[in-house]
Write a protein that binds this DNA or RNA. Structure first.
Length: 136
DNA sequence: GCCAACGTTGGC
DNA sequence: GCCAACGTTGGC
């Protein structure tokens, strides 16, 4: 089991949209590093969904339901998409400010490489964020 | 192969 | 709205 974090602007596509639709094709990724991460996703992997720019918080957990396949929005084999389904909403969204202040999260890509849109999380990082979502 | 110019992302 | 960081493009 691997853990991931994916970013989206809620004005474009939000966690609420994912819940409403019951499923989403995560397409449109045009960055090689993000693409490489997408290709390593396995069915059943859990993915934090982060709303960038306006909300700046992690709002839910999705689950990979279909592994990488050619991005249907472009006629170019280089780019891949995955399908995800909603898994669990967070009781308390975990804000970027909170993440920055939390011990054990100082090295996550969200802080280190703020423009990467699909990133891996270590299991311990996933656990820390999950605990924040349940306690704070 | 280098690097300047440009476009985009995303935090502030 | 601004701007730093970063990725991509294209001329040389």
């Amino acid at each position: 089991m691997n853990y991931w974090l994916m970013k989206t602007e809620s004005e474009t596509f939000s966690w609420q949209d994912l819940v409403r639709d019951g499923k989403a094709c995560w397409d449109g990724v045009r960055n090689y590093q993000a693409r490489n991460n997408i290709q390593q996703m396995k069915k059943g992997d859990l993915v934090f969904i982060y709303h960038s720019v306006s909300d700046k918080e992690i709002v839910g957990i999705a689950k990979v339901s279909r592994e990488a396949y050619p991005d249907p929005t472009i006629d170019d084999e280089r780019w891949k998409a995955v399908d995800v389904v909603p898994f669990q909403a967070l009781d308390n969204p975990v804000t970027l400010a909170k993440i920055k202040k939390t011990e054990g999260l100082e090295n996550i890509y969200l802080l280190k490489q703020s423009r990467l849109s699909v990133m891996p999380l270590k299991p311990e990082e996933f656990d820390i964020i999950l605990a924040l979502a349940q306690n704070s």
